[in-house]
Design a protein around this nucleic acid. Structure first.
Lengths: 238, 238
DNA sequence: CACCATTTCAAACGCCTGTTTGAATCATAC
DNA sequence: GTATGATTCAAACAGGCGTTTGAAATGGTG
């Protein structure tokens, strides 16, 4: 029998989690077979089903291992903000920083695997797999609720729909930031120049806050003519 | 023999392309089998290999069918800008609009399948599958080169690396814009409210230009203390 | 009509998938 | 030493995968 004291888990479990995390980033969930995972983790094929029950449960475990900590850190940062502010209104930039700065702090942690995980997480936000999507939605529910609510209160004059969209846009920018600049270099046919990851946070924050503070779009002022030219161009070519 | 009465059903090739496009959006490339594609297209299983050669070739065909037109429209819009400007410098906002406005114009075209395709394209930008990634990079090479070059010339005082990063961030925001607001509603546990897609373009453009015009980040002014608090929080919890 | 290229079709191919099984191994407790 | 539960292991399972095959059906042309 194994008493609660023997928490030092057999390391097989963790080796599998590490291997799966790295392989999922590289080849996606469906593109990564259990045989590749277990071989990479130097474990037996049946070990995944023994320790986790199924491949889907393994995917959940990979996320839960780090996502719980990340979201708790986010909530803690928001708690601290609200405690400091007292009854005063929170600055939107502080709220944004509490959410995205926390994520980038984990992404900058290359030693404990946080960087790998954040690349996986950002790539998974729009995962086609329905099971993964619902799982992520549940994991994010509380954090989203708290941060959107804080932004609603901080920007009472801005329509809530507008705030949700801008938060969505910010998530997209962060997602691509996590993925790295390599794709831009590749698509532009440029050689890849290594970047200092420490510069990513200020770069992204500056961009995010610029977008958040941008004047609200006035539908009447949209430059329609060019829009329609382009539209016709697409139809003509297609 | 098929009399005139029987509907002029689109050719098998096109039915397969349409079915594959829609299914790829929903379940990804690896999650969509040839059997599901051909059944959905009401075609024989062997039809894909007959018409396209392989599943990979089908994926390429799905993209090429619309991506070529999209990128040609983008280049045409940039050509027009440069012709109008003559020797004068281009306004960065115009360049951004030529790139992203064109994409959103296609995304707004729900009747010809442009909307479906743009959702697929935006999700595929960070595809793990190496084959798809390289194919996309090649398809994008010329457009990326032209637009980045235009931005470099329009913003000579801004470091090129900074411009590339911001362009990357903008791509991320657009990618999530294409995916729709549903995920935010789902993650926040809110009911999904249908949105007017016509409002998406001004919303996104306002955000993108706000981000593009944001002051350049000053590394020295990064709010370090909070950053480290959060960082420690993550380590402590993990 | 026959001819011929194009397209469809059912069936099979070999390989890979996630999962299960039952025995072997290990570590600990009595 | 032996009993006990946890873990590993090789082997097999049923089923799905992309692809190939060769014959049947189709449609236009001389």
């Amino acid at each position: 029998m194994c008493p609660v004291a023997c928490m030092p888990q057999p390391e097989t479990r963790d080796r599998i989690l590490d291997a799966a995390e790295a392989l999922f980033v590289e080849h996606g969930f469906e593109g990564t077979s259990m045989r590749v995972i277990t071989r990479s983790a130097q474990a037996n094929l049946a070990a995944v089903n023994y320790h986790f029950g199924s491949k889907d449960a393994l995917i959940q475990a990979v996320f839960r291992r780090r996502l719980t900590a990340l979201n708790e850190a986010r909530l803690a940062a928001l708690d601290q903000l609200e405690a400091q502010a007292g009854d005063a209104a929170l600055k939107p930039s502080r709220i944004v920083f509490a959410f995205f700065g926390t994520a980038l702090a984990m992404a900058a942690d290359t030693e404990h695997g946080g960087a790998t995980f954040m690349r996986l997480l950002s790539r998974t936000y729009n995962e086609p797999n329905a099971f993964v999507r619902q799982f992520l939605a549940e994991e994010y529910a509380e954090v989203m609720d708290r941060f959107l609510g804080a932004l609603f209160r901080a920007l009472p004059e801005v329509p809530r729909t507008e705030i949700m969209w801008r938060f969505h846009f910010m998530m997209g920018a962060m997602s691509f930031a996590m993925a790295g600049i390599e794709s831009v270099h590749a698509m532009a046919g440029l050689p890849y120049e290594d970047e200092d990851p420490a510069r990513l946070l200020p770069r992204l924050m500056s961009f995010l806050l610029g977008g958040l503070r941008a004047p609200l779009a006035d539908l009447a002022e949209t430059p329609r003519p060019m829009m329609f030219d382009v539209h016709d161009g697409i139809h003509g070519a297609g």
